[in-house]
Structure formats: C-alpha cells, structure tokens
Computed example of a mutant assay.
Amino acid sequence: MTGTFTTRTINIATGATETMHDLTNACSAFLREVAHGRNGLLNVFTPHATSGLAIIETGAGSDDDLLAALREILPADDRWRARHGRPGHGSDHVLPALVPPHATLPVVNGELELGASQSVVLVNSNRESPERQVRLSFLG
C-alpha cells in the first residue's frame, strides 16, 4: 500500500513585532481537506532563517513566557557577529537553533494528535519581516 503526499504553503502576517502565531487551526483545516481519515504524519516547516516552530500551550501565559525567555537568552544587542539589518538582528538568526524551523506531528484518523493544551505556533522574532510562509505537508 502506498501513501499519499500532499503539501501546501500558507502565508502568515506576523507584523512588525516579535510574535507567536497559532497555526493549530490551519493545520487541522489542512488535514480535514487532505487526510480523509487516514493515519500519517504532518510536517510543518518555515523556510526562514529567523523563525521557528514550537509545540506549546497558548493563552495561559506560556506563549508570553517563551518570548520573554528568548529575549533573555537572545538579547537584541551588538554582541552578535551577524551585523546586517537593525542593531541586534543577529540574535534573530540564532533563534532557529533553539526553536527549530520544523515539527513533525502524528495524524490519527485524519486528525492532528496533540496533547491537552498543546498548540502548534510559529515563533518570529524578526521585526524586519512582517510576512512569513509555512509549509504544511501530509504523508499518509
């Protein structure tokens, strides 16, 4: 039995501030359209050098805590060797080493199999790029 592979790119307006954008509904809508009740894997990927993907609780403060922790770990100052862009932009380029640009998630009976309170989020610290792309790919 051979599996099917379906992929789509979605555009996300992230604005001019550091942000986390919840992708869970977009992932679920994509799977409703393409998975047809099958089991498989959903890969979520952002092709940017300054953003990443996280599985985290949102709305209860954890999302704000993650952004605060990233500001503490990766301060936007002049210590970074990457010097293009605004001062401190080099820290944005280190973000994907801590918050990877990909996530692979189980799909069971056509639905995203997340734990209680888990969400799929795009983490973007780059205030110079107000638009991001995310590729959703289902293999099942």
Rank of each mutant, 00 (worst) to 15 (best):
R81T: 10
S125G: 14
H48A: 00
I10V: 15
A60G: 12
D92L: 03
P100V: 09
E72H: 12
L53P: 00
S62F: 03
N39S: 11
L136D: 02
H21Q: 02
E113V: 07
S51Y: 00
V94I: 14
T7D: 14
S51P: 06
E113W: 08
V34S: 07
A68W: 06
L122D: 00
A13Q: 12
V123D: 06
L67D: 12
L114M: 08
T17E: 15
N11I: 07
S51G: 03
V120W: 07
R79F: 11
A54N: 09
E33M: 03
R132Y: 07
E33G: 01
E18N: 04
V44G: 08
L114D: 12
I55H: 09
L95Q: 09
A116E: 11
R81V: 12
A68E: 12
P106L: 06
N25F: 14
L114I: 00
H89A: 03
L74I: 02
T104P: 15
T50A: 01
R86P: 13
C27M: 10
V94G: 03
L31V: 07
T58P: 09
I10E: 13
E113R: 09
L23E: 07
A103P: 15
S137W: 04
F45D: 01
A35M: 11
H21K: 02
T46C: 01
D78S: 11
A16S: 10
P96Q: 15
I12A: 02
E128L: 04
G115I: 02
R38I: 06
G37N: 11
A29D: 13
N11S: 15
P87I: 10
N126Q: 06
L41G: 11
T58Y: 11
N11P: 08
L122F: 01
G15K: 06
V121Y: 05
S51E: 07
L53K: 01
R32C: 11
F5K: 09
E72I: 05
V123Q: 08
T24P: 10
P75E: 06
A26G: 05
G59E: 12
H93N: 11
L74R: 04
R83E: 14
I12S: 00
R132N: 03
L31H: 09
T58S: 04
F45T: 02
D64T: 09
P96G: 05
A103V: 12
G110D: 10
A68Y: 08
H36G: 14
L95N: 05
L67G: 08
V94N: 05
T50M: 05
T24E: 05
N126P: 11
A82N: 14
A54Y: 03
F30M: 04
V94F: 13
H89Y: 07
T104Q: 13
V94T: 05
N126H: 08
G85A: 00
R83W: 02
S137C: 02
R81L: 09
I73G: 10
L23K: 04
N11A: 14
H84G: 04
P75A: 10
S62T: 05
S62L: 02
A82Y: 13
G85M: 04
A29G: 10
V99Y: 11
T24F: 08
A13C: 06
L136P: 05
L136Q: 04
G59H: 05
A103G: 15
V107N: 04
E33V: 03
T46P: 04
E18A: 00
L74T: 11
F5N: 13
R135N: 08
